[in-house]
Simulated assay, not measured.
Amino acid sequence: MATRRFELTSSPLFVAEGIFAAEIVGECRRRGLLAGAYALRRPRSATFLRRLARDLAEQRKGPRVLLLRGLALLRAEPAVLRRQTGLGAEAARGRDVLRRVAGLLAAGHPPQAG
């Protein structure tokens, strides 16, 4: 697995998103950097339709290939969510995640220096 270093010198917090974000939960927790870790839990059919519409609009592959790929991802989604929660992320709906992050910011988390 490749690694990349990044600096957060003046940032009070950062958000890692995407299917691989759960990979860093354990290390962030170990370093005391973790305020929360969430894996989005959405209706699978909505995710399937949103992905299919995006992929069809991009026209990178034929519709049949995109449909078959989308169905495979639809079936795999519960396993992906289990893996992410197994790595320490909490399954939550998008609006719940936004509310929790807003709460962290309002509370000044992490505490500001100065």
Results as ranks from 00 to 15, higher is better:
A76T: 03
R4I: 00
D55W: 05
V101K: 07
R69K: 14
A21R: 02
S11F: 06
P12N: 09
R31S: 12
D55C: 09
L105F: 07
R93H: 10
C28I: 07
V15C: 14
T85W: 09
E77I: 01
G18Q: 08
A92P: 02
F6G: 03
Q59S: 13
K61F: 02
A89D: 10
Q59V: 11
G103A: 06
A92K: 08
D96G: 06
S45W: 14
T47H: 06
T9A: 15
P43L: 05
G88Y: 04
A72R: 11
R83S: 08
A107I: 10
L73N: 01
Q84I: 02
A46K: 14
G62F: 01
L8C: 12
S45P: 00
F6H: 12
F48T: 01
R75F: 13
R5S: 10
A76M: 13
V101F: 06
R64I: 03
L98E: 04
L56I: 03
E77D: 01
P110N: 08
R30V: 09
L98C: 07
S11D: 13
F14Q: 03
D96F: 00
R44I: 05
E17G: 02
E17F: 14
F20Y: 10
Q59P: 00
L68D: 09
L74I: 02
V25L: 05
T3S: 12
R42G: 05
F6A: 14
G36R: 05
G36F: 06
R60F: 05
Q112I: 11
L52A: 01
Q112W: 13
R93A: 13
G94C: 02
I19N: 05
R5G: 04
R41D: 06
E27Y: 05
V65W: 07
P78K: 12
F6L: 15
E23A: 15
D55G: 13
S10G: 15
R51P: 02
G94R: 11
C28G: 09
E90R: 15
A46C: 09
M1C: 08
Q59F: 04
R31F: 13
V25N: 05
F6W: 15
G26I: 13
G32I: 11
R51H: 06
L87G: 01
A35Q: 13
G114A: 13
